[in-house]
Design a protein around this nucleic acid. Structure first.
Lengths: 365, 365
DNA sequence: CTGTTAGCGCTTTCAA
DNA sequence: TTGAAAGCGCTAACAG
């Protein structure tokens, strides 16, 4: 009866391999670690012994003495969001290609989680960290400063933080947002709803107030709002606070807000949705009001997906280069690790408006 | 001019804290590690010193000497799939609640990646591993055996492996699949297409061949196919190989296969899609053939989503308890770690068929 | 209750 | 070229 109860034998260490091969620890370490000189014969013996014992290096011990882990940490806002999932894949593909493992932690948009996650990464001695931060207001970035002070390089991705002089990889949110809204305006719309607004209770009545409310929130949200306002300004369309969603950023609430915008005396005839859930929420409202698009209402949303393409009619959407975004972030983090000078600049990638069939001229009301 | 160039000062160690506080290392270690007895006064001084120096324990050193890391490893097939993303969240919520960090690695359905990922986790000395495996045939599970031999407990999630006597948490794929197909049959359908089949070049002509091809692939696929066949059998409907998709499991190919099924002399009047992408692929085919659902064709798919609910008409879908699946896996892994007897059994959770409007009687052809 | 000492497994001088 | 020995930061026996 095999010793099923007692815990399994401890994994073999380098000393055991050395003993088995009849050489000193250092020699075994050198051949197994792939550094220094070892004669072919001894190398042979060590390899055989390692094979026989099923030796695998203890990564912990190794990073303990070398000080490097060949591991990158990634902190994202929500791994359940296909946008971040795609970005993470870009990061891990790029880092693996350069011999780095990546460990990812999701904060679900909670700042405390973000701080905890960053600390976990620091404590585990990763060689660098990539963060899509939920922190915006200055003063909430001490966890990032802490990382920096301890010598852990960090690069920001998707969400910039102005107060930090860091390498940052983002998408031209403001420009595409403007392009999307311009597309709507070009089709003849003047009553354009902005669907994922700042999560404040009351609709700010002035542009300034609105912008500052947005600025206090997620960085991308603020940029997209700016793009919306840019387009309105260029076309000489006055900003109407009733056309921007406020309150919790949930699909349910988006539906409520869109229903509100659609029942206004001078209702919205087009919607610009800044997130996937904002779009599905809007679609529910359209259905609830027994309206159809693009006849009664035009639609443009952020984050293209297979679903958006199979909707009937297919939705005009903004496609972000998610994989490339992650790959670039990894590159920017790894280059300095491998000797390059840190750049400390902002790298901007371009999103693309994918024209389909959810935009048409506004109905005569 | 601050030393910007030279690398930042090394993070403070416990010895430095001890020195600063004027106590021995052990005392500092005891108060900072939260074990053993320390007088209130000394504790006070140590805490102050730690605070002052910005001390954070080195997790590597700690696990090095204790042998535990309070970290769980998770290996999933594709973190970009909302199903796995949701499951991962269930795992991390549950483990964090019990004081464990989790690090997740995605294999993108590649067995070599799965092996590499598992090894990374073993090498980093995680306390346990949760795997949604891409390996099915026996003989490809040596990486899992290796983990076990080295004393790393592993639990399987979503995808069972019969040849391994391990705790496993899955969903009743076969039963829901059967329920879905029965629903179609009850509506009057007899020509029901099965959309995500085994990735073989030629359609197997016998049930046996089909099943064994599926069994060689992802576990869930085989189960869902069995459920499909179960329903057919119960209704006395003969199995027709032309109604099951074969070839690469991609959205594009699903479209091709569905187009094929829809142009058969005796065409499919209903489709059972086993994955999200299979459904979007099918929807493209429906559009291409200028058909509409549920009038011309009934549809049921796996993995409910916000999109499925806003389609027009909304889709009848199978909703899997993803969060619960992950939470249960974490529980099953952690319980033995905290002293409970390992169970080594299969835990089955139930998926739910969400009735909406994509099923109707077949058209008169 | 506190300090000293010996490891954890690996890398890395430094002699031999 | 190879081996002995020190050290990474922490925990854990063991004295005191």
């Amino acid at each position: 009866m095999p010793a099923d109860r007692g815990r399994p034998p401890a994994p073999p260490t380098i000393s055991e391999v050395a003993a088995e091969a009849g050489v000193g620890r250092a020699t075994a370490a050198r051949t197994l670690g792939g550094y220094g000189y070892v004669s072919p014969e001894l190398k042979e013996r060590v390899l055989a012994a390692a094979e026989k014992l099923g030796y695998r290096a203890n990564a912990l011990a190794r990073s303990m003495s070398t000080g490097v882990s060949h591991t990158l940490g990634v902190v994202v806002a929500d791994i359940g969001n296909p946008f971040f999932a795609g970005m993470v894949r870009g990061i891990s593909d790029a880092s693996r290609a350069r011999g780095f493992d990546t460990i990812v932690l999701s904060t679900y948009e909670d700042l405390d989680e973000e701080i905890a996650a960053t600390n976990v990464l620091i404590d585990k001695r990763v060689d660098g960290v990539i963060i899509a931060s939920a922190a915006v207001g200055r003063g909430e970035v001490t966890h990032i400063r802490t990382a920096l002070e301890r010598g852990v390089p960090v690069v920001l991705v998707d969400r910039a933080i102005g107060s930090l002089d860091l390498d940052t990889v983002v998408i031209d949110n403001r420009d595409v947002a403007r392009e999307a809204v311009e597309t709507l305006i070009a089709a003849g719309h003047r009553r354009i709803g902005f669907v994922w607004g700042p999560p404040v209770a009351q609709a700010p009545t002035t542009r300034r107030a609105l912008l500052s409310a947005a600025a206090r929130n997620v960085w991308t949200d603020g940029e997209r709002l700016r793009g919306y306002l840019d387009a309105l300004d260029d076309a000489g369309i006055p900003f109407d606070p009733e056309l921007v969603m406020v309150g919790p950023k949930t699909e349910e609430h988006a539906t409520e807000e869109v229903v509100r915008m659609l029942t206004l005396p001078h209702r919205a005839t087009a919607l610009f949705c800044t997130e996937t859930d904002a779009m599905t929420g809007a679609l529910r409202a359209v259905r609830a009001r027994k309206l159809s698009y693009p006849g009664d209402l035009s639609l443009i949303g952020f984050d293209d997906s297979a679903w958006a393409a199979v909707m009937d009619p297919p939705l005009t959407m903004i496609e972000q280069p998610v994989h490339q975004l992650g790959a670039k972030a990894a590159e920017v983090l790894l280059d300095p690790l491998e000797g390059a000078e840190p750049r400390r600049e902002t790298h901007t990638l371009h999103a693309r408006l994918v024209m389909r069939s959810s935009v048409a001229p506004p109905p005569a009301l």
